[in-house]
């Protein structure tokens, strides 16, 4: 059946494009990041940085932002690995949970320190030469 609107197919296409765009803008630039490293007996034992796309929209406003050079790549993992030291220093500034346990048995000492950045949602804006990353709180 022909609709009153002669350009129904064009209208449908435009609507679907708008819908797709809105869905894409909802989650594409939000990432969940967690970081944890373990130091045992004054030696680094394990370091973990987890990055994943946010499956649902995060709540909060962007806080202190960090600008990382990205050289046009839109992959956050790659951008962070290219600027790992900067990003780790930035996470230290955001605040880390410190958990330290030390045990001395018969004058022999063992210690474990765990530094953790709890899973935080970050908003990331990719540009041509840099990526702007800010935690949402």
């Amino acid at each position: 059946m022909r609709s009153r609107d002669g350009n129904s197919s064009i209208t449908r296409a435009i609507c679907s494009l708008i819908l797709l765009n809105s869905f894409a803008s909802l989650n594409a630039n939000e990432f969940l990041i967690s970081y944890r490293y373990i130091v045992k007996d004054a030696t680094l034992y394990n370091e973990t940085l987890r990055i994943s796309d946010s499956m649902k929209k995060c709540v909060g406003k962007p806080q202190k932002a960090l600008i990382l050079t990205s050289f046009g790549d839109k992959d956050l993992k790659e951008t962070i690995s290219n600027n790992s030291q900067e990003f780790i220093d930035y996470m230290h500034k955001l605040g880390l949970n410190v958990e330290h346990k030390e045990s001395t048995t018969n004058y022999q000492n063992r210690s474990t320190t765990i530094l953790t950045l709890k899973t935080t949602c970050f908003k990331v804006d990719f540009n041509d030469n840099f990526a702007r990353i800010a935690p949402l709180k």
């Binding site: 880390l96 949970n97 958990e99 330290h100 346990k101 030390e102 045990s103 001395t104 018969n106």
Partner: peptide, 18 residues
């Protein structure tokens, strides 16, 4: 026979500068 001392710390540290 055995002497043990255990210490533990739990905190959240923010804005520390090297």
């Amino acid at each position: 026979k055995r002497s043990t001392v255990r210490t533990s710390v739990k905190a959240m540290v923010r804005n520390a500068n090297v």
